[in-house]
């Protein structure tokens, strides 16, 4: 399809979609109004399960099955990236070059914030049921925060500390633990991912039953996933090169 034809087709289809979406927007309840039926159902349900963070309660308790699906998309994407970016037959892995200059300020900032960022990430995961945050957010903070070691140190320093197999197992473990927990609760209570654990008292760190556990398993999975993903892209840029004499 040539470019002008494609643009014309998009003009037509996009115009129709725009009209329909604008009409739909005018039929929605007004912005900022007080009509939220899902909220009215979700907030009391979360409070019954002793989970102050209603968003975490929805993700890991009320609609845990959706999160299992999303987690599987995440796992599949990570596996896809690993498969796509592995060195091909006509490529080889070289030793990363040493060198490059680093500002002292960058190094200081990086090493100062490495422990702080990782701790904040762990806290975000652990308090997912109480305060804003949870496994998804904390996992991303941990996974990217560990790369301060690359920014402030070197690729070699990152490789020495980051054992990729650990994170590959962590990725599988996080996803597997979520699914196994779902099956176990299904056997015990008859409902997949039902909150069968002791609920504790509202607002305590060890409360909200299974939300805490599932938060941690998602945190492990997301942190490991981010580590594995970034490792593939970094290796592609720094380590993988065309083998000599290979034809594209």
């Amino acid at each position: 399809m040539s470019r002008p034809v494609r643009l014309a087709m998009f003009g037509l289809a996009g115009g129709v979609t725009a009209v329909l979406l604008v009409l739909a927007a005018f039929a929605l309840p007004g912005f900022g109004g007080s009509r939220h039926p899902y909220r009215d159902a979700a907030v009391p349900a979360a409070v019954r399960h002793a989970t102050p963070n209603v968003i975490s309660s929805i993700n890991f308790d009320l609609r845990g099955l959706d999160t299992l699906g999303e987690e599987t998309i995440l796992l599949a994407s990570v596996v896809g990236v690993v498969v796509l970016l592995r060195p091909a037959a006509d490529e080889r892995v070289r030793e990363p070059r040493i060198g490059g200059r680093l500002l002292d300020g960058t190094r200081l900032f990086g090493y100062l914030f490495l422990p702080i960022t990782t701790t904040i990430g762990l806290l975000t995961v652990a308090h997912g049921a109480l305060t804003p945050g949870g496994g998804f957010q904390g996992g991303v903070v941990i996974g990217t925060g560990l790369h301060l070691l690359y920014v402030a140190g070197s690729y070699r320093a990152l490789k020495r500390v980051r054992h990729l197999e650990v994170f590959e197992y962590g990725e599988a473990l996080g996803a597997g633990a979520f699914a196994c927990f779902g099956v176990a609760t299904g056997l015990v209570s008859g409902a997949f991912l039902a909150n069968v654990l002791p609920l504790g008292s509202f607002g305590d760190l060890f409360s909200s039953g299974s939300v805490l556990l599932l938060n941690c398993s998602v945190g492990i999975e997301v942190a490991s996933g981010v580590m594995v993903l970034l490792a593939q892209f970094l290796a592609q840029d720094i380590e993988v090169e065309q083998a000599e004499g290979a034809k594209r």
Partner: peptide
């Protein structure tokens, strides 16, 4: 819709 920090009494008047 987060009632944990600082601890507040749950209410229905929160965002969805």
């Amino acid at each position: 819709p987060v009632f944990g920090s600082p601890p507040t009494k749950p209410t229905l008047k929160v965002t969805d």
